[in-house]
Simulated scan of single mutants.
Amino acid sequence: MMVEAMTLLLKQLNDYVAQADGGAPGAPVQAVWGNVAQLERPEVASELENHIVLTLVNLEEERTLKNGRSFATVGPSDIAYRNRPVHLNLFVLFTANYRNYGTALRRLSQVLAFFQGKQKFTLANSPGALPQVPIAEFSLTMDLLSPTFEEVNHLWGFLGAKQVASVLYRGRLVAISDDRVLAGGGRIREIDVLSRDATQ
C-alpha cells in the first residue's frame, strides 16, 4: 500500500507541476522517489539531480484505530476472523534537489501550493493516478509539518546528507492488511440455558 500511496502522489504532483509550468500532463517528470541519504553517491546523485525527490523518512502506527472488530460476515451464515489492518502515518520528505537555488525554491513553492489545494487523495478524486488498481479503497490525507531548527538538524543528521531545500509532510492513513483468514465458523443463532437441576 505504501508503493501505491507514493505512486499516486508522484503522478498527481507531476501533473500539477507540468500544468503550473504551462505544459500538459505527461511533460518531463519533475518529481521522483529516492533516498536523499544517498545523494553523496555519484550514481544516485545523477538520477536525483534537478528533481523533486520524495523520501519516506519515518512510519508511525495510528494506535487510535487498533481497537475494533476482528471478524467479518462471509455469506449469509459464516464468520471469518482476521487481524485488524495496520493503519500507518507516512512521513514524507519532499526535497527540491536542483543546482539552481531559485529553481529549487520555485519547485518547493509548487509542492506547497499543490498540497494546499488538495489535501485528501482517494481513488475517486485521483482518476488515472493508479493505472492498475490493486485495491478497492484508498484514502490519504497530507498534513504539513513544521519541525523546529533542532528537529531539522536531527533529520538531516541521521540522513547523513547536507541540508537541501525541503518540506516535510505526514500522510494519514495508509492501511496495511494481509486479509488472511485466521479462523472461521458459523454464527451463533441461539443459546440454550440449562437450569442447574437439569445438569445434575
Results as ranks from 00 to 15, higher is better:
M2W: 14
V3P: 05
V3Y: 01
V3L: 03
E4M: 08
E4F: 08
A5H: 02
M6D: 14
T7A: 13
L9V: 02
L10D: 07
N14M: 07
D15S: 06
D15N: 03
D15F: 02
V17R: 13
A18E: 07
D21P: 13
G26Q: 10
G26S: 10
G26K: 09
A27I: 01
P28Q: 14
V29Q: 15
W33M: 05
W33A: 04
W33V: 06
G34R: 03
N35H: 15
E40H: 09
P42C: 10
E43N: 11
A45P: 03
L48S: 09
L48G: 12
H51Y: 02
H51L: 02
I52P: 04
I52Q: 04
I52M: 08
L54V: 14
V57E: 03
V57D: 06
N58Y: 15
N58E: 12
L59V: 06
E61V: 01
E62W: 13
K66L: 14
G68T: 02
G68L: 09
R69D: 13
R69N: 08
F71C: 01
F71K: 02
A72T: 14
T73I: 11
S77I: 14
I79D: 12
Y81R: 09
R82M: 12
R82I: 05
R82Y: 14
L88G: 10
F94Y: 06
T95Y: 01
N100G: 08
N100R: 05
Y101G: 00
L105Y: 09
R106Y: 10
R107Y: 09
S109H: 14
V111R: 01
V111E: 12
V111K: 06
L112C: 10
F114N: 14
F114T: 08
F114M: 11
F115C: 01
Q116V: 07
Q119G: 04
Q119H: 07
F121N: 07
T122I: 09
L123V: 08
L130E: 08
P131T: 11
Q132E: 14
A136G: 13
S139M: 12
T141Y: 03
L145T: 13
T148N: 04
T148L: 04
V152M: 01
L155H: 07
W156V: 00
W156I: 00
F158G: 00
L159M: 10
A161H: 00
A161K: 00
Q163S: 08
Q163G: 10
V164W: 07
A165N: 07
S166Y: 02
S166L: 07
R172D: 15
R172N: 13
L173C: 11
L173W: 14
V174C: 13
D179W: 08
V181K: 11
G184V: 06
G184N: 11
G186A: 02
R187C: 02
R187G: 08
I188E: 06
R189G: 06
E190G: 04
D192R: 03
V193Q: 12
L194Q: 02
R196K: 04
A198I: 01
